[in-house]
Computed example of a mutant assay.
Amino acid sequence: MTPVLGPQIGVPVTPAASVRVPPEPGELRYQRCAECEAANFAPTELCRGCSSGTLHWATSAGRGSVYSWTVVRRPAGRGSAGSYAVAIVDLDEGYRMLTNLVEVEPTEIHSGMRVRVDLRPTGEERILPFFTPDHG
């Protein structure tokens, strides 16, 4: 099989200014509802569980498991030939995230595979969360 060479780096969606709080370097953040304790990701103004506006920011440990995935293969000759893996990851804190899996062979990816966050700069003063296999 062809190894996963690199992630697709797009422009992340910028949430409304009222819900943006810049994370500390090296942090993956999400919102937790003070009323029902539901984890909310992507950032929102009202809790998806109970519609409360009492959301606070929490720091994720960045560990979870693969819920679903696909491997995208790009044809050679288009300047960025290769493949990358896109996955939905269930984070241990109780939310799901659409992300890229890196440093893993496509044949090794499976539902339930444990992963951990790998925060990487994109070269545009942005840091995006990718996930790698969690062997520990």
Score class of each variant (00 low, 15 high):
51 S>F: 13
51 S>V: 10
52 S>H: 11
52 S>Y: 08
52 S>E: 09
53 G>I: 09
57 W>Y: 07
57 W>E: 10
58 A>M: 11
58 A>C: 12
58 A>I: 03
59 T>V: 15
59 T>W: 01
59 T>L: 00
59 T>N: 04
60 S>F: 01
60 S>G: 04
60 S>Y: 01
61 A>V: 14
61 A>M: 06
62 G>V: 00
62 G>A: 06
62 G>K: 05
64 G>E: 03
64 G>C: 03
64 G>S: 05
66 V>K: 05
66 V>I: 14
68 S>L: 07
68 S>E: 09
68 S>F: 07
69 W>A: 15
70 T>Y: 10
70 T>R: 13
71 V>S: 04
72 V>I: 15
74 R>G: 02
74 R>H: 11
75 P>R: 14
76 A>P: 11
78 R>C: 11
79 G>P: 03
79 G>L: 05
79 G>F: 02
79 G>W: 00
79 G>H: 04
80 S>K: 13
80 S>A: 15
81 A>N: 06
82 G>Q: 05
82 G>F: 10
85 A>V: 01
85 A>T: 00
86 V>R: 04
86 V>Y: 01
86 V>F: 01
88 I>F: 11
88 I>E: 07
90 D>E: 13
91 L>G: 02
91 L>C: 04
91 L>Y: 01
92 D>T: 08
92 D>P: 02
93 E>I: 00
93 E>C: 01
96 R>N: 13
96 R>D: 08
96 R>Y: 10
97 M>A: 10
98 L>E: 12
98 L>F: 15
98 L>S: 13
99 T>W: 05
99 T>S: 15
